[in-house]
């Protein structure tokens, strides 16, 4: 079953100089359980595409359907609730609330969903253990390394049991060892929990971990292939 259906999607930015087509007529389908990388040089439209997909921005043309819902049909307030329940986010940085502990950060999204305390706590602990931070539950983001912070962000993104997780260059600020560890954790959660991941990157070693690679150039999909990931 398709989780995401993107139809002829375009996004134009008006700059003083000219119109920029950051995303240009993209059509894509994603199924449940995918582990897909969106790859392309800087300025190719990766962030714009992911922001559209996450309902953070509005398309100029085309449509996005997520689990049957057309994002364009949602009012702003509904869109926020839709994101809360259906989409997990991992950004390049500033993922966490600095004044909360790792555990509280992961619990926070579930609290927004109104889940009971005991359930929240249990799932947050389970997820933090799954990303290898079972010992750092009570650490604040400032006390964690960059790689550890991104792992908390992955746990947080999965906490709400979303349809899929969008990660925009999650390894961009990490050294290569932490980057690979993060990818391995994401890949394992993808297999074990069946979580769908769509992430952007321009790091070839990260690309090698993906099972599907979508190449963007000037806002257009120039290649879309499945591959055997390197272990």
């Amino acid at each position: 079953m398709n989780v995401i259906e993107i139809e002829n999607l375009s996004k134009e930015y008006q700059t003083p100089a000219a119109k920029v087509r950051a995303v240009d007529g993209v059509s894509l389908r994603f199924e449940r359980g995918e582990f897909a990388a969106i790859v392309g040089p800087s300025g190719s439209g990766k962030t714009t595409l992911l922001n559209l997909l996450g309902g953070l921005d509005q398309a100029t043309a085309g449509s996005i359907r997520i689990a049957g819902t057309d994002l364009a049909s949602l009012r702003p307030g509904q869109l926020i609730d839709f994101r809360k329940d259906n989409i997990g986010f991992v950004f390049q940085s500033y993922n966490l609330i600095p004044v909360l502990t790792a555990l509280e950060n992961v619990e926070f999204v579930m609290q927004l969903q109104g889940r009971p305390k005991a359930e929240r706590r249990a799932r947050a602990v389970e997820l933090l253990e799954a990303v290898g931070l079972g010992e750092r539950l009570d650490s604040r983001p400032g006390q964690l390394s960059g790689g550890q912070q991104q792992r908390v962000a992955v746990a947080r993104a999965l906490a709400s049991k979303p349809q899929f997780v969008l990660a925009d260059e999650p390894t961009a600020n990490l050294d290569s060892r932490s980057a690979l560890t993060l990818l391995e954790i994401m890949e394992r959660l993808n297999r074990e929990e069946g979580a769908t991941f769509i992430f952007s990157t321009h790091d070839p070693r990260v690309v090698a971990k993906a099972r599907r690679v979508i190449w963007l150039e000037d806002g257009k999909v120039v290649s879309d292939k499945t591959q055997e990931p390197t272990i």
Binding site: D85, F89, I97, L112, S160
Partner: peptide
């Protein structure tokens, strides 16, 4: 921005 993205409403 992150808080709004993860579902904190207005």
């Amino acid at each position: 921005g992150m808080l709004m993205a993860i579902g904190m409403n207005k």
